[in-house]
Amino acid sequence: MQFLIDNFWALTITGLTLGAVYALVALGYTLVYGVLRLINFAHSEVFMYGTFAALWVVMFLGGKAGGGTGQVIFWIAMMFVAAMTMSGLIAVLLERFAYRPLRKRNAPPLIALISAVGASFVLAEVMGLREKIVAWVGLDDNLRAYVRNSRNAVGLPDIVAKEPVFTVGGYAVTNVDIFVIVGAITIMVILDQFVKRSRLGRGIRAVAQDPEAAALMGVNRDRVIQVTFLVGGVMAGAAAVFYLLRIGITRYDAGFLLGVKAFTAAVLGGIGNLRGALLGGFVLGLAENYGSAIVGTQWKDVVAFVLLIVILLFRPTGLLGESLGKARA
């Protein structure tokens, strides 16, 4: 307990940065759940591909510690472009090959979960075996730097120097912390407005509310679903960049635990509800940090799941309730 009081601000800020990443990934789960009533189990891999895309683009551009401000901004911008493109692409492909064939055949909902699990294995293993696959194609000489040790963690070059900007209660808040929290919230505000105001956003809400009525009103359901996956993937790509800046390393199986946590966050806030995902992410990030300060770091994940169970007991539809469709226009 004393530890929690002494380090309250440090725990809060790191909890918020972690929560921002959870929240962004949780958005992908929530969006897809909203329109398809389906847990997109492979979304964690969408995120993982984003981290690698961000990493590779920095390697490609020769990013290293001690670059000038302009250079660092350029690198980070390129990371966003690469990660969002990659994650969006993977998410759309996922929808095309793992979900759409099932939808066309009116498969029972559980089977979609199995297809998602399969897709998740395939995506993770392709990344984990990239060294062998590239050697098999015969490109290993050109790509060695990118694919080597494909089953181990790969680190991002230290492109951003972590500098304290100001101090809160004895904890020096760094530029990276601020960037992650502010950046994530900005992106989510943009998404919220997109779903609220744009034509496609209206389509998403319509399909979430009543797919058949939406189709009768002329909404192209397949297109809306595709856009939903794309948006979810792009969010995961952004999360991947923040994650990489914050944690610094990634691995072919890095998505798994994060995916589980993000899904927990989505359920915590009320699945299908965008603001719920945001709230759920931050609550989960903070609760994990406070909880592990009280009962010990090794119980961090237990804290997260116990919190989830307790909240579902008292609010069975999550903190904010489930309502992508019911969000006010």
Partner: peptide, 22 residues
């Protein structure tokens, strides 16, 4: 050994698509 999880994942996807009822 290396590829079996990959193949297993592919098999799950194919099964899901072609035998959705199991």
């Amino acid at each position: 050994a290396d590829f079996r999880v990959l193949v297993f994942g592919l098999a799950l996807m194919l099964l899901a698509i072609f035998r959705p009822q199991g």
